[in-house]
């Protein structure tokens, strides 16, 4: 492998990793605050991408407006899911909550297949034009957008979690939900807010990456598995870990795929197993420690 190829694989891996990071950060945000692994994260994004597709192709809405509408639609979906699905089940059974998100994922896939048909559609990229050359590295314009979006999202999430009182409340709930309720933190509205942000991220992520694939009801499936891998590697309980984990997975996957194309996807599942065995707390995760 020449150095040029290596560099290109790495940078292109970073842009793929940014996608995993975007999906992963949304999952971690919801997981940490509400203690629910959202298996519908990917398919929420898929469904919103279909809505965006028809806004662009049929209704001829300008792309930038569609992007904003897609983020807003994601937030609304998140609000509704929390308010009308999660909330009533939360006090009854935790396992049911996780099953609900699985069901939601299937619901979105079925609905998309029913409403929009399963044949793949080509989704136009946000920015088109010739690839950009940086020395020996060749990068697609959309890839750069994805990378920048991931960085911006990380920044916004960081500011939300560490600079706003709602963010502090979300962190407090993740550490001790009972204490948060006792202190009078309105936990239901924080849950709604976090679901809204997480699902808005799902919409943004799916919209940014769909041009690289084609739009069909199952296109987010494998990406979500990779995002889970990123979260496990990053340590489950840190948005930062999900971001870095996503980037690492993207690069490693790309390098492995170049040498051994056949094991590209299964390799990541092996990584999950190894990480869980050797360092279950991941790269940036904290082991739970509490002192009373």
């Amino acid at each position: 492998m020449s150095i040029d190829i290596f560099l290109n694989l790495t940078v292109r891996g970073l842009t793929t990793g940014a996608v995993y990071a975007l999906v992963g950060m949304g999952i971690v945000l919801i997981l940490q605050t509400t203690n629910v692994m959202n298996f519908a994260q990917g398919d929420t994004g898929m469904f919103i991408t279909y809505l965006a597709f028809f806004m662009i192709t049929t209704a001829k809405v300008p792309y930038s407006l569609v992007l904003i509408l897609a983020i807003a639609a994601g937030a609304v979906v998140g609000l509704l899911v929390e308010r009308f699905m999660m909330r009533s089940v939360r006090s009854r059974s935790h396992l049911s909550l996780i099953m609900l998100t699985l069901g939601l994922s299937l619901l979105f896939q079925g609905l998309a297949a029913f409403l929009f048909k399963t044949e793949p559609r080509l989704f136009p990229p946000l920015v088109s034009g010739d690839p950009i050359k940086l020395g020996p590295i060749i990068l697609g314009r959309q890839d750069i957008v994805v990378l920048l979006a991931a960085i911006a999202t990380f920044g916004i999430l960081y500011l939300f979690l560490y600079r706003t009182k709602q963010g502090a409340a979300a962190r407090s709930i993740s550490q001790d939900e009972y204490a948060a309720r006792v202190l009078g933190i309105p936990t239901p509205s924080i849950y709604m807010l976090v679901w809204a942000i997480g699902s808005a991220l799902a919409g943004l992520a799916a919209l940014l990456i769909v041009p690289r694939f084609s739009l069909e009801p199952s296109f987010m499936g494998l990406i979500q598995v990779k995002a889970f891998t990123a979260i496990v590697l990053g340590g489950m309980n840190s948005v930062f870990g999900a971001a870095v984990g996503g980037l690492i997975i993207g690069v490693v996957e790309n390098l492995v795929a170049y040498q051994f194309p056949a094991i590209k996807d299964s390799f990541m599942l092996i990584v999950i197993v190894i990480v869980l065995l050797v360092m279950p707390q991941g790269l940036f995760g904290k082991r739970q420690q509490r002192r009373f």
Binding site: A168, Q175, A179, R290
Partner: peptide, 21 residues
């Protein structure tokens, strides 16, 4: 509450501020 239930990873100041949410 019984058992204090301090948020272990939040600063003392954040613990206090959250109590006056």
């Amino acid at each position: 509450p019984e058992g204090r239930h301090i948020f272990p990873d939040l600063t003392v100041e954040d613990n206090l501020l959250l109590a006056a949410y």
